[in-house]
């Protein structure tokens, strides 16, 4: 038998302004219109792996259960396929809500430390800030170093395959003037006045 877990929720666990803050992100303004039909969860190819379905995430966000939402793997499993976005009968832009929640989770440091998805997002962010472009191979290498995710998945074979087909290049892609981009990005205010991540 698995461990017995107590699951009752008290009102003190709710964050009264959470829903409002999320709704302030572009695309998230219709969040409250959700009437919990479950179309998003039904159409989502990844809901079967999530600890809360997308419907539940929308609901928990609305209700202000911030910790429950930001600690869930759901927001990180969202692959941005936008299926829920276009099928939602209440025009809730679920994909945008997921982005807003990811941003919030990163800002609050609420994601699991070696969980690969937020790590990828941050490595990507840093690499683009540095070179202005992405070199996929290097991104993968960095991810590998940080998370160990490919252990046991036999990724060496894929690596060999890519080498054989001439697609595994370690040459770094870069803009001619990445410093100009950096200047622009630095001029952009960090979100909601919070501490910058990278």
């Amino acid at each position: 038998m698995s461990k017995i877990r107590r699951t009752i929720k008290y009102e003190s666990e709710r964050d009264g302004t959470f829903a409002e803050e999320i709704m302030a992100s572009p695309g998230c303004e219709d969040l409250l219109g959700c009437f919990q039909c479950g179309t998003c969860s039904g159409v989502c190819p990844l809901s079967i792996y999530m600890d809360h379905t997308p419907r539940q995430i929308i609901y928990l966000t609305r209700q202000g259960f911030k910790d429950e939402v930001l600690r869930s793997n759901t927001i990180w499993l969202c692959a941005s396929c936008y299926a829920c976005y276009v099928d939602c009968p209440k025009t809730v832009h679920i994909t945008d809500v997921m982005y807003a929640l990811k941003q919030r989770a990163i800002r609050e440091g609420l994601y699991p430390s070696r969980f690969p998805i937020p790590v990828l997002a941050r490595e990507f962010y840093k690499m683009v800030r540095g070179k202005g472009r992405l070199t996929e191979t290097w991104l993968v290498v960095r991810l590998l170093l940080k998370t160990n995710i490919f252990k046991g998945f036999g990724m060496w074979r894929l690596g060999l395959g890519l080498l054989r087909t001439g697609r595994f290049s370690l040459a770094v892609e870069s803009m001619k003037h990445p410093e100009e981009l950096r200047r622009i990005l630095d001029a952009s205010p960090a979100q909601h006045g919070k501490k910058e991540v990278a």
């Binding site: 807003a100 962010y125 683009v128 001619k176 952009s188």
Partner: peptide
């Protein structure tokens, strides 16, 4: 001298 569009990952970190 185009730059990376940001793909899905950049949006996860900082929207503006």
């Amino acid at each position: 001298d185009w730059n990376c569009c940001g793909a899905t990952a950049y949006m996860s970190v900082d929207e503006s």
